[in-house]
Computed example of a mutant assay.
Amino acid sequence: MDIANSTTRPFRVGFLLIDGFALLSYSAAIEPLRAANLLAGRKLYEIEQLPVLGGQSVSSSGAIIKASAHLGERVDFDLILVVAGGDPARFSDERIYQWLRHLARRGVRMGGVSGGPVILAQSGIMAGRRMTVHWEHAPALAEFAPALILERTIYVIDRDRLTCAGGTAALDMMHALITGHHGADFARRVSDWFVHTEIRPAGGPQRAGPVERYGTASTPVLRAIELMENHIADPLELGQLADLTGLGARQLNRLFKDKLGRSTMGFYRDLRLDKADNLLSQSTLNITEIALAAGFANSAHFSHSYRQKFGRSPSARRGQFARSDLPERHRV
């Protein structure tokens, strides 16, 4: 995901609302953007509401959200977030799928909240992308499309795709989005506005907290790791990590070496290789696709780096797992 320049035009976000969407999930995704505008004193985010049909959409609790834009209008969105609840697997609208595919081909970032990732998967735009979904919908989605790279996490940002499990997890995902655009300090101000002081990483909650996982309570280091986890397939440069954590590149490097015993970019490379190792055992992606998903420019560079870390080639690792086992291992 590109790092936005704070001096450019507002970042345009469209919320595609599927009737029966959960109001909490929707609010947790949209309110951080509204608060960011308020705290910045200017419009950082331009927000549009897009019901599937007509002039309004209705949540599961009966709340009515009026349309501010409609499908097919000439609006240059930077991000579309699909918000759905209930039983999204029963949703079927080829017009919506075609529109989402059209925007994806144009390079618009696509996201899903709660049941929204199911709609993205049904439209066929999640191939080769890591993703998550609310636990209630995960078994049906895995059955529908066993080749999807489903993860048991609260949110996943993979290049131009953002997916989250819904509920309060949307607060954490939007914190990551705002951090990428305007830095960790400003994103923290937005989270504090909602008394959301315990920001969860993309990998939570099924892993230990970052302090326990990495053995450090250093705020800049943990902020940098959060950025790394959110930019696996599109790695940030050292200067970008430093800027977004509010430090100089040398300061950040010194902290990583002091707290974790590795350079910043060495740690980052190992994080990406660990993700690739997981994909080799848990997905049916070919090695070139895994290389790209882990942020390597080509399979040759990936294979060299993988062998250096693990002492064997990616193909040897893949050979440990029978192809017939992969769909079952891949299921959520």
Score class of each variant (00 low, 15 high):
267 F>V: 00
225 I>P: 02
129 R>Q: 10
263 S>M: 10
26 Y>D: 12
195 V>T: 10
167 G>C: 13
250 R>F: 13
168 T>I: 10
44 L>S: 09
175 H>T: 00
264 T>V: 15
66 K>R: 15
55 G>K: 14
264 T>S: 12
129 R>E: 07
83 V>Y: 08
119 I>V: 14
212 E>G: 11
13 V>C: 00
176 A>D: 08
42 R>N: 07
165 A>L: 12
164 C>D: 07
141 L>C: 13
318 R>V: 06
261 G>P: 07
144 F>N: 06
235 P>D: 11
76 D>E: 15
294 A>G: 09
51 P>L: 11
68 S>K: 12
93 D>K: 01
150 L>P: 05
47 I>L: 15
254 R>Q: 15
167 G>S: 14
330 H>P: 07
22 A>C: 14
236 L>F: 00
6 S>K: 15
295 G>W: 07
295 G>K: 06
128 G>M: 04
134 H>F: 12
72 G>K: 04
219 T>E: 12
176 A>V: 09
187 A>P: 08
273 L>C: 05
40 A>M: 09
289 E>G: 09
313 S>K: 12
312 R>K: 13
42 R>Y: 11
229 E>G: 04
186 F>K: 12
262 R>F: 13
326 L>C: 03
51 P>S: 07
321 F>D: 03
263 S>N: 06
152 R>F: 02
263 S>E: 00
241 L>P: 11
270 D>Y: 04
182 H>K: 01
100 L>W: 08
68 S>Y: 05
114 S>C: 15
322 A>C: 03
201 P>S: 12
327 P>K: 07
109 R>I: 10
39 L>S: 05
98 Q>R: 15
208 A>M: 13
228 M>R: 06
22 A>L: 06
323 R>P: 05
22 A>T: 09
159 R>M: 11
